[in-house]
């Protein structure tokens, strides 16, 4: 089997390691995408969320062989977008970021939601963020921030 080719935040890359390596580790160690956090390595917390071909994934539960020819977006890429700016502003205005460890994953989960459903209800927001644990906020500020971002960013998604 040849190298694994994929696009990382818009850049084409070829990974030469094992197909069984964890995407989470490879993103952090090989490509220095340290916004992707390791909270449990079992798919139970969402801190390592990334977007693969437009869809939210836990990068700890993805082997490298599964991302061949895929396009991966982490916060390192997403933070350059206008959508990020809207989400960041909304989170900032409600002080929705406390310790910050869950946040890059949480914001990508919000992006995955809004890209499918630009005007979500509170229930839909709570459903779509339900795989991203936050121990600090009690979720109010995060859920409200996503709601506000959807309003503010009308047309972006």
């Amino acid at each position: 089997m040849a190298d694994i080719h994929f696009t990382l935040n818009g850049q084409e890359v070829a990974y030469e390691g094992s197909a069984a390596d964890r995407l989470l580790d490879v993103l952090r160690d090989t490509y220095r995408c340290t916004s992707v956090k390791c909270g449990c390595k079992e798919g139970e917390c969402g801190a390592c969320s990334v977007i693969i071909d437009g869809i939210l994934h836990n990068s700890c539960c993805v082997a490298m062989g599964a991302v061949n020819n895929c396009s991966i977006v982490t916060m390192e890429g997403y933070r350059e977008t206008d959508r990020f700016k809207v989400l960041s502003k909304a989170f900032g205005e409600l002080s929705a970021v406390q310790c910050g460890f869950c946040i890059p994953g949480m914001v990508l989960a919000a992006e995955a939601l809004l890209s499918q459903n630009p005007k979500p209800t509170e229930e839909e927001i709570r459903e779509e963020l339900s795989g991203n644990l936050c121990r600090c906020t009690g979720y109010n500020a995060i859920v409200n921030a996503v709601k506000n971002a959807a309003k503010e960013g009308d047309g972006l998604w």
Binding site: M75, R79, L87, S88, G92, G100, I103, P104
Partner: peptide, 24 residues
């Protein structure tokens, strides 16, 4: 009156370096 937290930008953009994030 609320302000934007000082650590908001580095944290939300994933630029904050936690101890696990220093190069190996």
């Amino acid at each position: 009156q609320s302000v934007i937290k000082k650590d908001h930008d580095p944290k939300i953009s994933g630029r904050s370096i936690y101890v696990c994030d220093y190069p190996s």
